[in-house]
Design a protein around this nucleic acid. Structure first.
Lengths: 198, 198
DNA sequence: AATTGCATGTAAGGAGTTACATGATTAA
DNA sequence: TTAATCATGTAACTCCTTACATGCAATT
């Protein structure tokens, strides 16, 4: 089946400069698979720093196929149909090009900090709860990261990608540690404010 | 002027559950001002963890006025017209309600980590450059945060909000420190991979 | 005379989520 | 038999950015 030969309506609404397309290309460069599978792989491997929804993935993959950057093949397992995608040579070229471009840092938006900043109108008790919840979440994440680290190391052995994949985990861990430190300081500030309010 | 009495087309396209509206309410609760001024205040005070564009602010403020949560007054300075907005009682109630709700953490998306994760197809030299750039950016941020901290402390004196505002700066500083630590580790990994490639 | 800053706004479109609709297969 | 998992896809909508259009005032 040649590129763009699938019947049905146009899917041209999807991303032209979206990074979703490169996530898809990157994952398919590692191993081919279905859109559904991509979704699962994203959630399991890079989910803590990148997420994609079906509503984003399906149109994007369709577009990539129309552009000849990926190739789809229908697979029949019993009566169940699946469409597996593989990256093409053109796809690898496009991916490599993107990988050479400096990463754009997305502007952060932190709702917790916003609520801290608007402390005037806020309820200190509520604030304390939010901070405690953030701390607990970071604690749980740290635990999870330790597990992922051990798992990756056990499975990958001498794979040259291992140190890089561990690096992405380390990023999460260092961030979570920093967050916990901040929560400590923040709880102290809240406690101080509550004390001086009496 | 009563709520919603401004002439012209409807502005109902804007955000219903957007946090932009609460940023506007929060800032107007601190002090009234123009939309243009809000934009500047956001950039100067909370810009490193929250950003808003005019295309977002103007429709949102118009909507808030239509809902009676803010009130606009035309001000004439010479021949220059300005429209200043102030928060209403209803606005304060809405703001307080939002501040009591647990903050939703936006899903992070980190393009640099993506490029690290796709190291297979990536160029190590390029990667090293990106990491070095991130480190340098974090270094510059740390310097900036130190300045902001000093400035805030000098200006605000005994204002009870000071420790909370400093807290938002601390968040940025702790994050930047964590990033720098990660960059160190990452550069070491890249160096190791480059050495073993020979 | 030109540039920068103050100030208001609109139009178009990209990116992304959520919810929905559908159906087969496998395990409890 | 019921629930979970595998699997594909669309529709509607929100949010948000970018680029544009306009004009006055102050500074260089």
């Amino acid at each position: 089946m040649t590129a763009g030969s699938r019947s049905g309506p146009d899917h041209r609404q999807a991303a032209r400069r979206s990074r979703t397309r490169f996530v898809v290309l990157g994952l398919l460069a590692q191993a081919p698979g279905s859109v559904y599978g991509l979704r699962r792989r994203i959630a399991e491997s890079i989910g803590y720093f990148w997420q994609e929804s079906y509503g984003q993935l399906f149109p994007t993959v369709a577009l990539l196929e129309a552009e000849g950057l990926v190739e789809g093949h229908d697979v029949l397992e019993g009566k169940r149909r699946r469409r597996d995608y593989a990256i093409t040579l053109a796809g690898r070229v496009a991916l490599a090009g993107w990988l050479r471009e400096p990463p754009a840092s997305q502007p952060e938006r932190n709702e917790l900090l916003l609520k801290v900043f608007f402390v005037d109108e806020a309820d200190l008790e509520a604030l304390r709860g939010f901070i405690a919840a953030a701390d607990e979440e970071a604690r749980a994440q740290l635990e999870a990261f330790a597990g992922i680290e051990a798992g990756l190391t056990a499975i990958l052995g001498a794979d040259p990608r291992l140190p890089f994949w561990l690096l992405t985990v380390r990023y999460g861990a260092l961030g979570a540690e920093a967050l916990r430190r901040w929560c400590d300081e923040a709880l102290a500030v809240v406690a101080g404010a509550e004390a001086s309010r009496e």
